[in-house]
Design a protein around this nucleic acid. Structure first.
Lengths: 241, 241
DNA sequence: GGCCCGCGTTGACGCAAATCAACGCTCGGC
DNA sequence: GCCGAGCGTTGATTTGCGTCAACGCGGGCC
């Protein structure tokens, strides 16, 4: 295959096969023999930090898998108040909605690379590979469980509990079931993003970080790096309090 | 068919065919010819007001469709704080989770009748009728969109906006796309349920109802009956404010 | 029919988090 | 290397909603 052919198809040969997040993504349900069919219908797009991927209520033509970087999903009120409904990472899925418009906006937090698929192509894929539909249903149920946990946080937790829960959520994701005692977290999103995710203001988030640091529950080598020297202590503080 | 046979099979002949909420439920995706197969695997259970249907973290064997009455879904914190994540009505679905335990608790608000199905039987049904899987995926996406809207409410709206949004949500559901100018709502749940759904206290909910009444935005013939004489005015108040 | 008991309402007060404001640090551009 | 803008932190003050408390009402039960 020549470079020209590569470019015209807008894919890299065997890209899906070599995709580092395939096992975590929707595509995990596509068996090895059908990866070629998958590659036929996907394309890739890059987004700069802060760039919009799509807006809420925009007509939905594509669904996306995050292959690199971090994405925020959000909803807005008329006066500009914002609620971030989720942070996505490589392997996560966005854009599937029942109606023909997106139910939320999406923006790149840092440099993002997405794997894109027309919804009509996805639907054809689903018809040909029922296992992918199972996978999507499973992923949706997981998202829903996470959303319910977030409702509990937003409706019933104090600022301190919200921040601790957020840090634990990040730590658990990074460690992925591991039973580590400590964790070093990278927070690519701004304080403003964290505040809008937790239903707080940036000032309250900042003050809470500071007071957790003073208590020794966390360490803050920089604004985007948080160290949890004792995860168990953080867990105790997050639920007890 | 004799009464004895009726009882032994725990179903009523043609119950699914005559089910008044079938077109709204998961079962809408089961075509007429296969209703018999559906009936083979469903049973019915009754619940008294306040009775628990299942607890959070309980092993999940069954999924349910609400055929009559109102159900609340909730999550608890260790100290008893509660967040209601949704109110269900006839036609709604509950209990499907990826892992083998429920992600939330469920209780009957008033007299409830559920249509029950073993998860293993549901899975077999899904294999035989792919359309049901599509329907479940659609319903999950709808639930997810509702959950995101609720996150916006919980994280970013004032008490007044929360109550107004709640009333509008109920009104829209009752009218079902209708363009009525006014609405009379029945609220089967208690003030405490409403408070735990909106992330408020019962006192704040009560005070907000009272002040909306004084403004003439709503009428309160009784605690469980709310009249919206001018839906547009309520919509304006819910988003502007 | 009278008496509770639970639910809803109302009032007084307190507090956690929001708001308003100022300042420092870091990083990118010239 | 300097400068400015954006982000994060910190401090002072306000406020919306929670907490604590009392009371009214309606419905079920004896």
């Amino acid at each position: 295959m020549t470079d020209a052919q590569d470019r015209s198809s807008n894919t890299v040969a065997n890209a899906c096969e070599r995709c580092s997040v395939r096992h975590r993504a929707m595509c995990a349900a596509v068996d090895f023999d059908h990866l070629g069919a998958l590659e036929q219908i996907v394309s890739h797009r890059q987004f700069a930090p802060g760039q919009s991927i799509f807006d809420e209520s925009e007509p939905a033509d594509y669904v996306y898998n995050v292959s690199n970087g971090d994405v925020r999903l959000y909803k807005l009120l008329a006066d500009g108040r914002r609620q971030i409904t989720g942070f996505l990472r490589p392997g996560d899925f966005l854009g599937l909605v029942k109606q023909d418009t997106y139910a939320y906006g999406a923006e790149a937090i840092d440099a993002v690379e997405l794997c894109c698929m027309r919804i009509v192509d996805l639907e054809r894929l689903l018809r040909e590979m029922p296992a992918v539909r199972d996978r999507l249903l499973d992923m949706s149920r997981d998202e829903l469980a996470a959303a319910q946990e977030q409702m509990l946080l937003l409706g019933r937790k104090s600022a301190r509990e919200k921040v601790l829960s957020f840090l634990l959520l990040r730590a658990r994701h990074d460690l992925d079931l591991d039973e580590a005692e400590s964790a070093a977290l990278d927070l690519p999103m701004s304080r403003s993003d964290i505040a809008d995710y937790l239903g707080l203001t940036i000032e309250t988030v900042s003050r809470t970080f500071t007071s957790l640091k003073e208590e020794g529950l966390i360490d803050l080598p920089s604004a985007q790096h948080v160290v949890l020297p004792n995860i168990e202590a953080v867990e105790a503080a997050a639920s007890a309090d």
